[in-house]
Design a protein around this nucleic acid. Structure first.
Length: 569
RNA sequence: GCCCCCGUAGCUCAGUUGGAUAGAGCGACUGCCUUCUAAGCAGCAGGUCGCAGGUUCGAGUCCUGCCGGGGGCGCCA
């Protein structure tokens, strides 16, 4: 069901298996005097179908022409050479199709991986170090504090947080930040709307009409000016935003105020630096950035004719602060696709400030629309994230948004989603976890399975050495049922899934994987009993260990997604 | 006009950075609970992967053009 091209890192056991096979291929190439600089070209694949073996390589298809042979001929010679000097665990090497080289391994390679999962545990399995030493800032949501969050904010919120979790698991040091747009014209408009409500006047044409404005107005007794009123409202709204995000498990390390940037003089400093570079000019009373020289399709205003600074100017000062003052190695901004228009200017500005543009990564999430209707904050035609969470609960809400790629525009059918909330994929996954948990409780109570000693109520009670020794008493070779094999194969992929999901900024790959693992578990659970009276004790023992490894893997997957793992359902 | 994303089963989406016979869930139909949770398992049905060219041993995946949908090109934020 899952197959990934193995690129570089994987779990250490998987990595050494892959290395062994690749070495075997390259040795065989040498014996044929056909090395052909193929070293870097040898890739292994996990065939989608078990009939095609455990691993497969297309190397012959790639280099045959260069050697003046047909792919099949080369493959046959290679297969023969490899079988003449087989590597560890190799059962047979076979030529298939147009010239694939398929490797069938002794299933003990999977048992090694199973051991690895058990020994590494939740903290260490599928953890990588390739991000070590990298300070990454992740800015996401950053919705204007002019109204409650809508479901679209929730989508990108879950995405950003899941990506942060992936980056952390791969060794990066991550700061989650929310940029608070607590200044500018919108705050004045918000203040006007609030005062209008308070004084019983008509809310201005372009004002905010949501009910929340009235509620906030009732609690406002500050001065009668739009800025004070606006700031008051914004801070009330912001604390509401915070608690909504907390509900779905999103916690920020930092809330960065735009007003603080503007008041600190950082904007002036930034413009001065650009001026010194000769990238700024005055025209029609405004101050312009010569963005065209840096890849943008038009020049951009930094200071308006009326003396106000633009959003871009503040944002550039903010990014200068991220890179040059706070020294993040990498900054990832997650925006909705409706902000696509500002990417080129932001990149141009960052380049102008002498920052390597690759250090800034802007990810655009396609928009969430609502069964045809558009969501608009000002018109009040949008679905509040809070309402969706009320309907579905935090876990189901998060999974919904982490099901597909952010390149995919979502059309949310609220009626469908709520009427089918019991069908939400999250329960399928959590159910697998709950089944494991309750089975383990029973196993311990009945004392039916010797291995239950190995995993007490709390794994941390068992030190690694003891655990390792106990595992030696378990006969993993008994695990040979197709369901068991399938389950172990799925688990073996987690390290690669974590790596890919991280580097491709694609947390939905974790969802896809964890869903598949749950499916494999349910199938196993159905066909392979553990606590039954007629199950051999040794087999039950081995299966119990397998189940524990699945539990660990599910916990890793779910925690990366920010979804809870319930013991009971 | 230019730029970005998308088009895969009736619906919502996966699809291993070009691989072998394109997969799940929901919906339809059919089986499976005296045994660890049936929120489950199994079977069956459902596809010109938007269209047309191209690249190659091989294209849902890469290139070009077209069609359709979403978003963007402010001295708004």
């Amino acid at each position: 069901m899952f197959a990934f091209k193995i690129v570089q890192s994987a779990g250490s056991v998987m990595l050494s298996i892959v290395d062994t096979i690749i070495d075997g291929i390259s040795k065989a190439l040498n014996t044929l005097d056909a090395d052909a600089d193929a070293d870097g070209l040898i890739h292994l694949e996990r065939p989608a179908r078990p009939e095609h073996g455990d691993f497969s390589s297309n190397i012959c298809l790639v280099i045959a022409k260069r050697l003046g042979m047909t792919p099949r001929l080369l493959a046959e010679r290679l297969a023969a050479a490899i079988q003449a000097d087989p590597f560890e665990d190799l059962v047979k090497a076979e030529v298939a199709g147009p010239g694939f080289l398929n490797f069938y391994l002794d299933k003990s390679y999977l048992h090694k991986i199973l051991r690895e999962v058990l020994l590494a545990g939740e903290d260490n399995y599928a953890r990588h170090t390739f991000g070590e030493g990298q300070k990454v800032q992740l800015e996401f949501v950053s919705a204007n504090p002019t109204g409650p969050l809508h479901v679209g904010n929730g989508w990108l919120g879950s995405y950003g947080d899941a990506l942060a979790r992936l980056l952390e698991r791969t060794g990066h040091s991550v700061t989650r930040e929310y940029y608070v747009n607590d200044t500018g014209n919108q705050i004045r408009v918000l203040g006007e709307s609030l005062l209008a409500r308070k004084e019983g006047r008509e809310v201005p044409e372009d004002g905010y009409r949501g009910e929340y404005v009235g509620e906030i107005a009732a609690g406002y007794d500050g001065p009668n000016d739009v800025v004070s009123a606006g700031r008051f409202a914004a801070s009330e709204i912001l604390s509401n935003i915070k608690s909504t995000l907390e509900r779905i498990g999103i916690h920020y390390d930092s809330w960065y105020s735009q007003a603080s940037i503007e008041e600190s003089g950082k904007v002036d400093g930034m413009i001065a630096q650009l001026k010194a570079e000769g990238l700024v000019y005055e025209q029609e009373g405004a101050t312009w950035l010569a963005a065209t020289k840096l890849g943008d399709n038009r020049d951009r205003v930094l200071v308006k004719a009326n003396g106000d600074i633009t959003y871009l100017a503040g944002d550039l000062a903010y990014h200068k602060n991220k890179f040059l003052e706070r020294q993040f190695d990498k900054v990832i901004d997650i925006f909705g696709a409706d902000h696509h228009g500002q990417v080129a200017s932001l990149k141009a500005g960052v380049k102008a400030l002498g920052i390597e543009p690759e250090r800034l990564e802007v990810l655009l999430g396609q928009l969430v629309s609502l069964a045809g209707k558009k969501m608009s904050k000002r018109a009040g035609t949008y679905v509040k994230l809070d309402d969706l969470v009320n309907e579905l609960g935090p876990d189901a809400t998060r999974i919904l948004s982490l099901l597909s790629s952010i390149d995919q525009a979502t059309t949310l059918d609220l009626d469908l989603v709520t009427s089918q909330s019991a069908e939400n994929p999250v329960f399928y996954i959590q159910y697998a976890y709950a089944r494991i948990s309750s089975m383990q409780v029973l196993a311990r109570e009945r004392g039916l399975v010797a291995a239950s000693e190995i995993f007490g109520a709390n794994r941390s009670l068992t030190d690694d050495e003891t655990l390792s020794a106990l595992l030696c008493g378990v006969d993993f070779t008994l695990l040979a049922h197709p369901r068991e094999i399938q389950l172990m194969k799925a688990m073996s992929l987690l390290p690669e899934v974590v790596e890919q999901a991280t580097t491709e900024r694609a947390p939905h790959k974790v969802t896809t994987w964890v869903r598949g693992l749950a499916a494999d578990f349910h199938g196993f659970y159905h066909d392979c009993r553990i606590l039954g009276e007629n199950v051999d004790a040794e087999l039950a023992n081995a299966r119990y260990c397998l189940v524990e490894a699945v539990r660990t893997s599910l916990r890793i997957g779910l925690s990366l997604l920010g979804v809870t793992a319930p013991e009971r359902m």
